[in-house]
Nucleic acid binder design. Sequence first.
RNA 1: GGCGCCAUCGUCUAGUGGUUAGGACAUUAGGUUUUCAUCCUAAGAACAGGGGUCCGAUUCCCCUUGGCGCUACCA
Length: 489
Amino acid sequence: MIKTRFAPSPTGYLHVGGLRTALFSYLFAKKNNGIFVLRVEDTDRERLVEGGLENIIRSLQWAGIFIDEGVDIGDDNRLIQKGESGPYIQSERLEKYHKYVQELLNNNHAYPCFCAKERLAELRQYQELNKLPTGYDGACRDIDKEESAKRINSGETHVIRMKMPRTGTTEFDDLVHGRVEFQNNLIDDQVILKSDGYPTYHFAVVVDDHLMGITHIIRGDEWISSTPKHLELYRMFHWETPAFAHLPLILNPDKSKLSKRQGDVAVGDYHDKGYLPEALVNFVAFLGWNPGDDRELFSLKELTGEFNIERVMKAGAVFNLEKLNWYNQQYLRALPLTELTELCKPFFAATGLNDLDFDWLTSVVALEKDRASTLVEIVENTKFIFTENLEYDQTILVWKKSTPEQTKANLKKLRELLNTIDTQNWNKEKLEALILGWIKETEQGVGDILCPMRVALSGQKNSPGPFEIAAVLGKEKSLDRIARALAMI
RNA sequence: GGCGCCAUCGUCUAGUGGUUAGGACAUUAGGUUUUCAUCCUAAGAACAGGGGUCCGAUUCCCCUUGGCGCUACCA
């Protein structure tokens, strides 16, 4: 049985890189009828953020990624843990780590290290200054057991380090990179248990992946260099090693690892800006993967069917916001209008527009459905509908091929004509038929009439067409706006 | 500094020992349109460099260069 996991640290929010890692782990598990686990790696007590874990799980749920086993949010909105290999939160597993550390100590695979942080800092400084490889020098590696026992009993602070072999190589076959090889003597003795009694990532990840029966470790490329340490731990314990797949990094436009400095990186930010989860997921899936042909639009379900770890790229991929916008536009358009309106409602509410008639709001949203690329854009671009006293810029109001006098006269006649339509017949089709018919009949320029009309109704340089807007505004408001515009010329 | 990973249009990518090196986003130009957007049409745009192997390399190998990652009692 295939089992994968996503193992975030609850340091605040879900990073889009994290989303992609979670997505690929999830897809790989689902594709193979396997199990997807969520484990929480909270061994760094200083970086914990209140509510960070809930936020991460909510973001995953928003994206459509649900957890088979591990930490989740239950129906009562509380954190729950499900599965046989719990607890799934590392801070609740300390006893297990201590047991395995002890085993390593007993077998002489690990040793207590009493080096003060200051000494380590000096050591590194010296190494850097002299352009030597940095790393622990093994000062405590050969302290004899009796002495270290004595020092520990006397209360001396210490960490536990694993003994890396000083010779040989460690190699493994990565599912995306192929064979990767490292020289053992260049890897220093990693701390596995910190002085506060918490394990380091390197130790906890190995113990947990083993105990939880993880078969495939799918994680970011930044871990590839520390894989030999993990492999050595598996060897020390005589545990079967899982398969590894190191995913290419998602990059900033300058090709560095995607970071907050250069744009939004939190999944929540994209939600807040009005991106649809389907679009983000589709986009992020294509950062480092493709189906091998020209198809680009994939639902999560379709991705599950098509995903193939062998088709994952080796090189990092730049996060291209314009392409995301395009994806979002595609999904926006594909959405039924009522559903789209429903999704827009909270965004309207955020600008103070509450309790609007739903059917009418639907017609407002329809104005921008095929034009906007985010939900926020829909709201922003339809703001003029709700604005009470529009201000007009005369240079826009008067069409470039016309004069103020002409415009004034045209709008006046237009208004009179519009007044002949009664409220029941006030809809886009009728308006269009009437006005276009009149323009044709009187042999006027289309732009001479429609342009000022559109600006009078919207106050905008650019907007949807005049008939759609008029229909949404209704007769009274439309005539009112034209009158106001008239007064401005 | 050391180690590792990577390298096709600006970006995401397809692709093959022999192709006019394909698509998408973006860009530019034209067309449709009452503005903008949409839509349609077209164009420009890439195999990092140098050695091999081979009849032939973008493709296989090596080197160089460049980019990135790691190098913590962070993950």
